[in-house]
């Protein structure tokens, strides 16, 4: 597949490395050329310096024949704009958008974007690991969905870390 990744931060670079190792045609776009260092020596795709929603930059990245695009810059707004340019102007069949702000994610879902709100997903994961309750939850991304299954695996059997008493009993004891 010809895949364009806009934003070469930690997520973008990792994605670029994995996809290019899997044999895909990868083009990574970032406004700061220094960030391409994150791609390391194994990356065998193309890097382009420029603004990700600039149609000229996207054309140089081969967007007219791209199968998919991931918008993963640090800016929610630029990800939203890049995705809309890819989807509505260049008709890229698969466009995935990363958005931090849950509220904005909710709103732009209605614009037909396939959004991954990583803040919501990480907080869900943290929640599960903190509370250690068996639980499964589903995150919808467009028509597809991601299922998270949290399974408690004998963590409480470790005798060195017994669960603390509830906060109420602690307070009573302090008196």
């Amino acid at each position: 597949m010809h895949i364009i990744i806009v934003g070469c931060g930690r997520v973008g670079a990792n994605l670029g490395i994995t996809l290019s190792a899997a044999g895909h045609n990868v083009v990574v776009v970032d406004k700061n050329p220094a960030s391409f260092k994150r791609l390391g020596p194994t990356f065998n795709g193309i890097t382009i310096t420029g603004i990700g929603f600039d149609p000229e930059v996207l054309k140089r990245a081969g967007i007219e024949r791209a199968d998919a695009l991931a918008a993963v810059t640090s800016g929610d707004n630029s990800n939203i704009m890049t995705s809309q340019v890819a989807k509505k102007v260049f008709k890229v069949p698969r466009v995935i958008t990363r958005i931090y702000d849950p509220e904005r994610a909710n709103i732009f879902k209605r614009f037909g974007l396939q959004i991954i709100c990583t803040s919501l997903i990480s907080s869900e994961i943290f929640n599960n690991f903190l509370l250690q309750e068996n639980k499964s939850s589903t995150v919808n991304v467009g028509k597809d969905s991601l299922k998270l299954d949290y399974i408690v695996n004998a963590a409480l059997e470790d005798p060195s870390t017994p669960p603390r008493q509830s906060s109420e009993s602690l307070r009573v004891r302090k008196k």
């Binding site: 929603f53 800016g75 707004n77 630029s78 939203i80 704009m81 809309q84 709103i107 209605r110």
Partner: peptide, 16 residues
């Protein structure tokens, strides 16, 4: 001064 912000602001105002 940012086109992406101007786009998002207009879309929010118009659609939401």
């Amino acid at each position: 001064g940012d086109d992406e912000d101007n786009l998002i602001i207009s879309q929010l105002a118009k659609e939401c």
